[in-house]
Design a protein around this nucleic acid. Structure first.
Length: 867
RNA sequence: GCCGGAGUGGCGAAACUGGUAGACGCGCCAGACUCAAAAUCUGGUUUGGGAAACCAAGUGUCGGUUCGAUUCCGACCUCCGGCACCA
């Protein structure tokens, strides 16, 4: 065995060994228990960042651990290869998105291999390849046949200067990121997936996902947002014609307090009222001067204007004025809301601002506070605290009873009924962009929307395009756009929108099982491997990606393509890898500089107080500690760490620095410590095997010192097994091994029995660390006298006889404070333990002369004496 | 604004079911080895008081439940993630 630990040599050797033996190739075998371990596939943005390294290390450790437990493990990898950054690269660097993407894939694949991740590369897929996206097009057409996709108009961010749809990310403070023109909202026709048809099931089955973090289930449930309310109408007469203004509310009990209604700027009533009102036209146009992001809508100043129209209250018949409001969106719900300023905070402030009426209709049951319209109080909107007042026949009813009575009365008038609503909206999948999967549809003047016939699939994304940042490049390709109608043969137009990239990532986990099938989207292998047993990815995907994937999986199930109900049996959401951010302001924009480009000063709490740019000594501003990202320029490149310390050190530190679900603040200094530990481990094994490997016969007896170290070996194994398999706290698993190795280095017993114990201990440490640091442990395994591959060696078993002890240390408290420790024989009675505790010298000092009030004995743990 | 999460030494963290707060690691300090340095090894390291034994305080803030709270409950503060076209 080499005396020194040389990661570069042993890592290359071990990786070659895995490849030669095909260790990670997954083959279906119904006689073996399968384990499908999946990490979220990366967007090929250029190089791996620390978030990838963390994600894939966690996944690889879990997969390797399960393999050692004897499972048939599948761990695949692929590329989420369509997306906006490729188009930006094309514009910025003049590279074709496809070339840029495939170059990045090649580079990142090499990086993944160097990190020693055990993937079955035969199943690799890239979503931008026609072999992949043809099935997405094919399946979209099946959904079209079933009526699960449809077209409707929806708002987009529009840059009036570039004539281009902008992603939310491309809207910077309300303006276009490229030309700084204020962005407006524009309604355009788009394709939608009917996810709301599955809302009930997506919500109900969250309860079955007990392998998911509670917080993710809660977030999804809130996102789906099932509510029970009443949909009802305000009738009106407009130019002699009867009409109804529909609204939905969960607070029908406050309906007697409605003092006005607010409609969206795009609502037909608003348009009607604006016909002879230039000021209203201006206001409606002003309302369009905002993006589509919900956070912007929720935080912007709420503005409105009276339309001059009135509707009739459905129960009182009173005239109710109709306003237009910038905070009501046409595409959500009915595009109109009732306003009850007395019992809704937003309506309250709106009414105050515009001098509209405030009518109290709910009073506190307990009468503790009274209503005062001068100032908003939290109880005004609390449906559990109040009863109806000033509400005619409904006076005295609480929330539930009032809603029932009011819904019944509205139904009798044929003006409304109870309705269950979801906050969840249908999934808009059209994107007006080049680098995505073409929507396989043709529009014909006489035949309407015509699906591309199956035999013409895939609709290939053309390569020769001119990406200018103005409009979608596909619209300028005559050969692509102008095609004969598949139905009637007359000239027709091809759809130029592409799919949301969430479409590709919503089913890739299933395609890995059948990746080489050119005849079908999925085959029977999907039912062997699915559901994914363990899915690992960033918490930032807690809602959108995971909800869309669950939805898509149900669509695949209902199409008969697979059987499982849910795609991911267990989910681990890793925390973000974060780092401080630094920036300068130039021309009103933030320009971020990397953490390694600045020198920082910190206060005595370790917080960064100021920073100077290394290259010119000028001060830069200190931002927050945020997720590592390209846009914030605060990423750490893992590659130089691998070059310097080796993959095992990078893997070890990543797993050691924090538990996987917590955010991880990067520090270069800790990496060094990981490297030191591996070197110490190497040296200990090297010193041990120098004198030959002890033969396998266990000694018949052990002395006390030997028993103690053996107990620690098996206690550690027990703990680590639990940490790896149940708790997923790899940081404490590593810490326990470090402790064991520290004890072992102090264990200087060179007798036959001592050497046998050291061999047993080092073998177990090597096996326990094998999933985390797979290269060094392969070398150590060989050095310890084993042939073959540690990656497929069985996980060790705890020797229960090594855990037996005769006395347990117990803690003694007086009034809850630690005052002494006692050693109690195993199986001692509470009385005996109490006597031992009271006899302890440290305890007596605090008990002496005071009457005992109470003594609590927790067997095996502690005694608390209350005086 | 809404939804979710986090806050413990100089730093990353541990304490799993309400039971010894700070395991393990980083950093720092001291010592050993060395002509010297690096590397390595040994010891110390929450804060305050004390030579020490030891005592007191201490897990974002304020309050509550309990023999006992980092852990449970209530209110608040700060930071982070998501908010439907970044992926």
């Amino acid at each position: 065995m080499e005396e020194n630990y040389q990661p570069a040599i042993i890592e290359a050797k071990t990786q070659q060994l895995w490849e030669d033996k095909g260790v990670f190739r997954a083959v279906e075998d119904p006689s073996r228990e399968k384990y499908y371990c999946l990490s979220m596939f990366p967007y090929p943005s250029g190089r791996l960042h620390m978030g990838h390294v963390r994600n894939y290390t966690i996944g690889d450790v879990m997969a390797r651990y399960q393999r050692m437990l004897g499972k048939n493990v599948l761990q695949p990898m692929g590329w989420d290869a369509f997306g906006l950054p490729a188009e930006n690269a094309a514009m910025g660097k003049g590279v074709h998105p496809a070339d840029w993407t495939f170059e990045n894939i090649a580079y990142m694949k090499r990086q993944l291999k160097e990190l020693g991740f055990g993937y079955d590369w035969q199943r690799e897929l890239a979503t931008c390849s026609p072999e992949y996206y043809r099935w997405e097009q094919w399946f979209f057409l099946r959904l079209l046949e079933k009526g699960l996709v449809y077209k409707k108009t929806a708002p987009v961010n529009w840059c009036p200067h570039d004539h281009t749809v902008l992603a939310n990310e491309q809207v910077i403070e309300g303006c276009c990121w490229r030309c700084d023109t204020p962005v407006v909202r524009k309604e355009i026709s788009q394709w939608f997936m009917r996810i709301t048809a599955y809302a009930e099931e997506l919500l109900a089955e969250l309860d079955t996902l007990d392998g998911w973090p509670e917080q993710v289930r809660t977030m999804q449930a809130n996102w789906i947002g099932k509510s029970h309310g009443v949909r009802f109408a305000f009738p009106y007469t407009l130019e002699g014609k009867e009409g109804k203004l529909w609204v939905y509310t969960t607070r029908a009990d406050t309906i007697m307090g409605v003092t006005f209604c607010v409609v969206a700027p795009e609502h037909p009533l608003a348009a009607h009222a604006a016909r002879h009102r230039p000021d209203l036209v201006d206001f409606i146009r002003e309302c369009e001067q905002s993006g589509t992001a919900e956070a912007d809508m929720a935080t912007m100043e709420k503005k409105g204007m009276d339309t001059g129209l009135t509707v009739r209250h459905p129960l009182t018949g009173n005239d109710i004025p109709v306003w237009v409001g910038n905070y009501v969106l046409m595409s959500y719900g009915e595009g109109a809301v009732m306003a009850v300023p007395a019992h809704d905070e937003r309506d309250f402030h709106f009414a105050k601002r515009y001098g509209l009426g405030i009518q109290q209709v709910i009073a506190r049951k307990d009468g503790k506070e009274t209503f005062d319209e001068a100032e908003w109080q939290d109880w005004y909107g609390d449906k559990t605290l109040g009863v109806c007042v000033h509400s005619a026949a409904y006076d005295g009813l609480d929330h539930g009873a009032a809603v029932d009575a009011i819904a019944k009365d509205l139904a009798a008038l044929d003006l409304g009924e109870k309705q269950t609503n979801f906050r969840l909206r249908d999934w808009g999948v059209s994107r007006q962009r080049y680098w995505g999967c073409p929507v396989p549809v043709i529009t014909c003047e006489s035949c309407g929307t015509v699906p591309v016939p199956d035999q013409d699939l895939p609709v290939l994304l053309p390569r020769d395009v001119d990406i200018t940042g103005v409009g979608s490049p596909l619209t300028r390709l005559d050969d692509f756009v102008n095609v004969p109608c598949p139905c009637c043969g007359k000239p027709a137009q091809r759809e130029t929108d592409t799919f949301d990239t969430f479409m590709e990532s919503s089913w890739y986990f299933a395609r890995y099982t059948s990746a080489d099938n050119a005849e079908a989207m999925l085959d029977e292998r999907a039912n062997y491997w699915l559901p994914v047993d363990q899915y690992i990815g960033g918490i930032e995907h807690a809602i959108l990606h995971l909800l869309y994937s669950r939805f898509y999986h149900k669509l695949l199930r209902d199409a008969g393509l697979l059987k499982a109900k849910e795609p991911f049996a267990r989910l681990l959401t890793q925390g973000m890898v974060v780092a401080p951010t630094f920036f300068r302001e130039a021309e009103g924009r933030k320009q971020y500089v990397g953490p390694d480009e600045v020198d920082v000063t910190t206060d005595d709490k370790g917080r960064i107080t100021s920073a100077l740019l290394k290259k010119d000594g000028q001060p830069v501003r200190v931002g927050g500690t945020e997720k590592m990202s390209k846009s914030k320029n605060n990423g750490v490149d893992p590659e130089h760490l691998v070059t310097r310390y080796g993959a095992d050190t990078v893997r070890l530190f990543t797993m050691f620095a924090a538990p996987p679900d917590q955010s991880l603040e990067w520090s270069d200094s800790g990496v060094e410590g990981g490297f030191r530990f591996l070197r110490r481990l190497w040296r200990q094994v090297s010193q041990h095997v120098e004198n030959g490997i002890p033969d396998g016969t266990a000694p018949s007896t052990f002395n006390d010192g030997q028993k103690q170290i053996r107990r620690q070996v098996h206690e550690t194994l027990k703990k680590v097994t639990d940490d790896m398999g149940r708790r997923f706290t790899f940081n404490t698993a590593i810490a326990a091994n470090m402790e064991l190795l520290n004890s072992l280095s102090r264990f200087e017993d060179t007798s036959e029995a001592g050497r046998w114990i050291r061999q047993e201990a080092l073998e177990r440490v090597t096996l326990m660390l094998a999933p985390i640091v797979p290269h060094i442990t392969q070398s150590l395994w060989e050095a310890l006298g084993h042939e073959g591959i540690i990656a497929t060696a069985p996980w060790p078993k705890v020797d229960a006889s090594a855990l037996v002890q005769d006395a347990i240390e117990m803690v003694v408290q007086v009034n809850g404070k630690l005052r002494g420790k006692i050693s109690a024989p195993v199986g001692a009675t509470s009385d005996a333990i109490q006597a031992l505790a009271l006899a302890d010298e440290g305890v007596q000092r605090f008990v002496e002369g005071q009457p005992l009030k109470k003594v609590i004995v927790v067997p095996g743990k502690l005694v608390n004496i209350v005086v």
